[in-house]
Design a protein around this nucleic acid. Structure first.
Length: 436
DNA sequence: TCTGGGGTCCTAGGACCC
DNA sequence: TCTGGGGTCCTAGGACCC
């Protein structure tokens, strides 16, 4: 390992830090409720693409026994029996609601790290200790009042502890969605009641590993030997251990770094057999990925293309992929499509029913560090200008307003979304109308 | 019938070099 | 009869997150 790797170093002590984690309660389900108040107190679930798996559940839905991440068809009976309201995922809606919530947090707190669509860390180190509880209440109240989504707030001296605090706040109604570990007398007693799997950074594999060795709770893990943890869980596990002991190893990252890979992939509603259909899907994926690429002002040096048949069915299976080095780092959609389709041709085999394909743009570099090849005969300036115009039109008129011919118009590969709610906040013709 | 999508980081081990 | 050692780079795979 590189000796300059900063990951080996821990601050001596960081007890003066205070972090908060603000996390939306059952976010997607709460978003669906916003425009549909009849759903209050009713079980609500949201499904993944193609209406496949359960990816969000209201508390009432959790109580019915519907499992997170499991295929929806396994719960058909429960859904009917408990009259669960089912929605296809509506990412345009959730993204917009998320932006509104985050902008409130930016307004209320000095330093914010948007960690995911429904979570943000706040650095409250500069805030007076006695003001923390009131501040957490203010966050909850403001977000609820201005946007309508309930949130939970966990506070602690490290990010990992703030995560745990949030976990406790959500699981135990008596805390009313706010837990501040800094003011709890004996956190060890609390930690004895939380399973080790509740720790941020301890997933399924590690929690099985730990439980087999008698480490069942957060408390057990916190008391584990540092070197043993380092040996079996690497530097990340060691950091987690330190964080649980109150030593801050993970700082607030206010600025999201550029992506190192950009991936677009989809499962198809109906499996595809023909090359033309896959070609249309693949070029559409490249188009979206290249938009994202240009948004962060990067160019890709390679593109990875993959295809696969349904891994669950008994039909003939085929999985293949190819990595294509682009002759010149580029963000020009047509150029990346050209190379991707060459790759697709290489791995396509007729006779299979393809369930999923995708592309990954990789080896990304900032677009101001380009080195053009000597034999490059493409007029890059013209194409870059064209891309800017296309991006502008699509941003204004709507995604896909201007397309490449190869993307086709039939969209054979479209998803199943039988229970999609309207884009209440981001499409003019789907705005909510209220009759008075 | 029906099983998501998009990311990151770390580590071990092989290739290669001197 | 002998068969080094240290370093870098790359990749695949495994872990995690939401």
């Amino acid at each position: 390992m590189n000796s300059t790797n900063p990951n080996n170093k821990f601050p001596e002590s960081a007890l003066n830090n205070v972090f908060a984690l603000v996390d939306c309660n059952n976010f997607y389900a709460s978003c669906e409720r916003l425009f549909n108040p009849k759903l209050e107190k009713k079980p609500v679930i949201v499904l993944s693409n193609n209406d496949g798996c359960v990816i969000a559940r209201s508390n009432e839905a959790k109580a019915t026994g519907i499992k997170m991440g499991a295929p929806a068809f396994e719960f058909k009976e429960l859904i009917t029996k408990h009259r669960v309201h089912v929605f296809s995922s509506n990412y345009a809606l959730y993204g917009d609601i998320s932006n509104r919530i985050m902008s409130i947090l930016y307004e209320l707190a000095p330093d914010v790290e948007v960690y995911s669509v429904d979570e943000a860390f706040l650095d409250l180190s500069k805030m007076k200790f006695e003001d923390l509880a009131a501040f957490a209440k203010k966050i909850r109240k403001t977000v609820k009042q201005w946007v309508g989504v309930p949130v939970s707030v966990g506070i602690g001296p490290t990010k990992t502890l703030a995560k745990i605090a949030n976990h406790v706040a959500k699981k135990n109604p008596e805390y009313a969605n706010i837990v501040n570990l800094c003011t709890i007398e004996n956190t060890d007693n609390l930690f004895k009641t939380i399973p080790v799997s509740g720790i941020w950074g301890v997933g399924r594999a590690y929690s099985n590993f730990l439980m087999e060795r008698g480490i069942h709770t957060v408390y057990d893990f916190k008391k584990s030997d540092e070197n043993w943890v380092r040996k079996h869980m690497g530097v990340i596990g060691q950091k987690t251990l330190f964080e649980l002991r109150g030593v801050s190893c993970l700082s607030l990252e206010a600025f999201a770094p550029d992506k190192k890979n950009i991936c677009i992939s989809r499962s198809f509603g109906t499996p595809l057999g023909s090359f033309e259909d896959l070609e249309q899907a693949t070029s559409t994926f490249v188009t979206r990925a290249a938009e994202k690429l240009r948004l962060q002002k990067s160019c890709a040096r390679a593109v990875f293309v993959f295809v696969m048949t349904n891994r669950f069915s008994n039909t003939p299976k085929y999985v293949n992929s190819t990595l294509i080095q682009l002759p010149v780092p580029t963000s020009i959609t047509s150029e990346i499509i050209h190379h991707s389709l060459k790759g697709l041709k290489k791995i396509y085999r007729p006779g299979y029913k393809y369930k999923k394909t995708g592309i990954i743009l990789s080896d990304l570099i900032p677009d101001d560090q380009l080195q053009y090849g000597i034999w490059d005969d493409l007029n890059r300036e013209n194409f870059t200008g064209l891309m800017q115009v296309v991006d502008k039109i699509n941003a204004r008129v709507g995604q896909g307003a201007v397309k490449f011919a190869v993307q086709g118009t039939k969209k054979q590969w479209k998803m199943h979304q039988e229970r999609l709610s309207p884009q209440y906040t981001s499409k003019w013709n789907e705005l909510l109308t209220i009759k008075i």
